[in-house]
Every structure is written in C-alpha cells, then in structure tokens.
C-alpha cells in the first residue's frame, strides 16, 4: 500500500501565496494610521525643511495672532510661530516617547530574565516588588524623580518616564515566559536535548516578541502623554525647550485671551499621533493573539 493511498481521505488544502500588501490589508493592518504616523514623524524629523520661522523666536510685534497668511497656525502668547514650533516640538515629543520606551523595555526584559533565572523564592519577591512599584501612580513617581534630578532636559525626562514605566512590561514578560515554559513544544524540545540558549532562541524569543512589541508601542504612547502632561504642568521641559507639552503650557494664558488656536492645534496633532499609535498597537495585539487562537 502506498503512503498516499493511506491518507486520501484527508483533503490536502493548497493556498496560493498572495502578495505581501494584500496579506497585510487582509490581516487588518491599520494602513491609514500607519501612513499618518509615518507622515507626521517624517515631517517632524525634517522640521528644518518646512519651518517658515525660527520656532523659538518671539515675534513681539505680533503676539497672539490668530492663524493668518504669515503665521499659518497663528502665534502663541509669547509671539512664537505655532506652525514651526509644531514640527520642531513634535520631534522632541516623539524622541522622548521612543527613548523612554526603549529604556523601560530594556529594564523590563533584564529584570524579567533575572527573575526567571533566580530561585523561586527570589523570583516571587522580585515580582512582588514590581507589584509595589506599580502601586505608585506613575505620575507621582515621575514628579518625585524629576524633583530629585532637578531641572529637566530631554534625557532626564526620558530616563524618569522610562524608569517608572517598566514594571508593567516586566510582569507581562514574566507571565508569558511562565506560560511558554509549560508549553508542550518547549518540553518536547527539552526532551530532545535542547539547551537553554536553543530554547531561548527558537521558542521563547519568537513568541515573546509580539507581546513585547505591543507593550513597547503602548509605552511610547504613554510616555508621550506623560511628557506632555508634565511639561504642561510646568514640571517637565522648560518653556524654552519646545515640545508639544511645553507649547500647551502657555495655553492657560491663551485661554483668557480666547486664543483657541494655541490649544486646539497642538492638541489635535498630539491626539492624532496617539490615535495612530494606539491603532497600530491594537493591531499588533490582535494579530499575535489570532495566531494562537486560530489553532
């Protein structure tokens, strides 16, 4: 009896490989969000090319101008051109977001790995510590740390936000590793003689990556919000370092003078950016959980 005959009852399905772009669209990839995000980030990176004015120059003769031909988005209460500041400030906001997310992911992965290697008692203690750190509202922790570090700049702010946002990632990484360890394919690999590094490379990293990526993307979003909130409250970047948060911190003055543009325009950009990041993050989460559930 030939092998093929044995199994003819089970239909062999064949799917033609589609084009990459089509596959991406089918998987629900948020094309619009990604495109918008790409445009905003690109424009921010190349801010010098499209700025019409020096973003920090105060046009004292035209303080608080509503949007007009010369100042496309108007000026703020210090006479700075909002259009130019928007791109210039966006660069700093995005930079802080990415930097602090990288810092927190790094700490989280190191901490998670250490807890994994450590004996179970220390492991439990480490996770409890992460719980306790999580219990301080991050804003308070940032306030505290920033107060200690003194005057804020881009680096110190990224550091502070990164240092306060890692426990959440560490906990997720830890629980994922726990789940993977009891997976039968990991057990099978161990039976075949797979060592620590083999299992790490072949089984853990590919399965952890989407989770970590989702957390990092969401952390970028959280860091951008934290930066803008802090700078708005006057605890983050000072007024002369332009970011979306520090631009908005002048808004209270604009409020009294009915200067809606100084609040609405940076705010709309901020929200659009956050929205795009959220959509991409949600897609990441959905696409990796779908891979598990489809089975």
């Amino acid at each position: 009896m030939s092998h093929r005959e044995l199994f003819d009852a089970e239909a062999v399905s064949q799917t033609a490989p589609g084009s990459f772009a089509k596959k991406l669209a089918d998987s629900g990839f948020p094309v619009l969000s990604a495109a918008l995000l790409g445009i905003i980030v690109l424009l921010c990176m190349g801010a010098e090319l499209i700025m019409t004015k020096d973003p920090s120059y105060m046009h004292l003769e035209s303080i608080h101008q509503p949007p007009c031909r010369e100042f496309i988005f108007g000026t703020d209460s210090m006479g700075r051109d909002i259009f130019s500041a928007l791109w210039y400030g966006g660069r700093i906001s995005v930079l802080i977001g990415v930097l602090s997310a990288v810092i927190s992911a790094l700490i989280a992965v190191l901490y998670g790995a250490a807890a994994d290697v450590a004996p179970s008692g220390i492991d439990t203690a480490m996770m409890r510590l992460a719980d306790i750190l999580l219990s301080i509202p991050s804003l308070l922790a940032v306030l505290f740390l920033q107060a200690i570090l003194g005057r804020a700049d881009v680096l110190s702010l990224s550091f502070v936000i990164g240092v306060t946002s890692w426990p959440a990632i560490a906990k997720v990484v830890r629980s994922e590793v726990r789940r993977l360890q009891s997976c039968e394919y990991v057990i099978a690999s161990r039976c075949m003689g797979g060592g620590f590094f083999h299992i790490l490379k072949m089984h853990f990293l590919p399965n952890l990556l989407p989770t970590v990526m989702f957390m990092v993307v969401m952390n970028i979003r959280g860091a951008i919000v934290a930066e803008s909130t802090l700078s708005f409250l006057g605890l983050g970047l000072p007024l002369d370092v332009i970011s979306w948060g520090s631009m908005l911190s002048l808004a209270e003055k604009s409020l009294l003078a009915s200067g809606w543009w100084a609040i609405v325009i940076p705010g709309v950009f901020l929200i659009t950016l956050l929205m795009c990041i959220t959509n991409i993050g949600n897609w990441l989460r959905k696409s990796f959980s779908a891979g598990e559930n489809n089975v």
């Binding site: 803008s228 908005l248 808004a251 209270e252 409020l255 009915s258 901020l270 956050l274 929205m275």
Partner: peptide, 22 residues
C-alpha cells in the same frame, strides 16, 4: 478608542475654554 486617546489635561483645557471662558 478616540476619546481615550485625549490626554486629560487637554480635555480639561478645552472644557474650561468652552464652558468657563466662552
């Protein structure tokens, strides 16, 4: 999803602008 992307401080500003100032 949209509303939860709006930072609290900005929402506060807008509400103050609309209901208190204007």
């Amino acid at each position: 999803t949209f509303v939860s992307c709006i930072p609290e401080f900005w929402l506060s500003l807008v509400l103050i602008f609309v209901f208190a100032v204007t």
